[in-house]
């Protein structure tokens, strides 16, 4: 069973068509990079996947649960890191995690145990008492990823999670998320416009003007010229 199955998804803002019949699937343990230039429709797709918007055409299912028919069951399987930071900066790291755990129905004891686990997993255990405001950009992002893992989701959605971070933080975060997919079998959908964040074994979806232009393994997609050149050529061709 696919962790995420999207079929024939379309969405409009008034007359503007933002997504045009998008279909793809992400399997458990797969790291899927959703590549697209700014304005390609990535954020709209994320808003639909997280049910902030509801699509009038198409179907989304998470671990076999239809997002439209059974939204709570589907959302419970999903961890999300939005492009904008969504931490409560006045609260400590532990309190941010506890708040999210409670929203997902975890008891205080369960929440504390899982917070310990996820912080250790992301090398942040010693920062549990620090205020989120006192963390640097990279650690804030890691905290958001830790928070998204609190309820042990089977699917992790990340919308341009490295925007605004320095190179070291970007490398560290992409490495952590790749490890989550590889070691814990979590399906990852990672939206980005930065081609260098994609590893050779990752699955790549190229989204442009609301359409999936190409999908496949990164190493197979552009063995000679490199993925960056391929991506540029593809999106330029589509624009022309």
């Amino acid at each position: 069973m696919a962790a995420l199955d999207v079929a024939g998804l379309s969405f409009r803002y008034g007359r503007k068509e933002a997504l045009k019949g998008v279909s793809f699937a992400v399997q458990p343990g797969e790291f899927c990079a959703l590549l697209g230039p700014n304005g390609a429709g990535k954020s709209t797709l994320f808003a639909l996947l997280t049910r902030l918007f509801v699509a009038k055409q198409g179907r989304i299912s998470v671990m076999g649960k239809d997002l439209q028919q059974a939204p709570r069951a589907a959302l419970a399987q999903m961890g999300v890191v939005f492009q904008q930071m969504t931490l409560d900066l006045d609260l400590s790291v532990a309190r941010n995690l506890a708040y999210f755990g409670a929203l997902h129905g975890l008891s205080r004891r369960e929440s504390a145990a899982r917070a310990q686990d996820v912080l250790e997993r992301l090398d942040m255990a010693e920062r549990a008492r620090e205020k989120a405001r006192d963390l640097n950009g990279g650690h804030r992002r890691r905290l958001e990823i830790a928070r998204a893992l609190m309820h042990r989701p089977r699917l992790l959605l990340l919308d341009e999670p490295t925007v605004g971070l320095d190179a070291r933080a970007r490398v560290s975060i992409t490495a952590h998320v790749h490890a989550l997919a590889r070691e814990d079998g979590i399906a990852v959908l990672w939206a980005t416009h930065l081609v260098d964040e994609v590893a050779a074994d990752d699955t790549v979806l190229i989204l442009h003007h609301g359409e999936i232009l190409e999908t496949g393994r990164a190493r197979d997609m552009a063995p000679q010229n490199g993925l960056a050149a391929h991506f540029m050529a593809l999106t330029e061709d589509a624009a022309a």
Partner: peptide
């Protein structure tokens, strides 16, 4: 605007 409302609204509750 800042996004934390999104976090709340994606919780698996009505």
């Amino acid at each position: 605007e800042m996004g934390s409302m999104r976090l709340l609204l994606t919780a698996p509750l009505p």
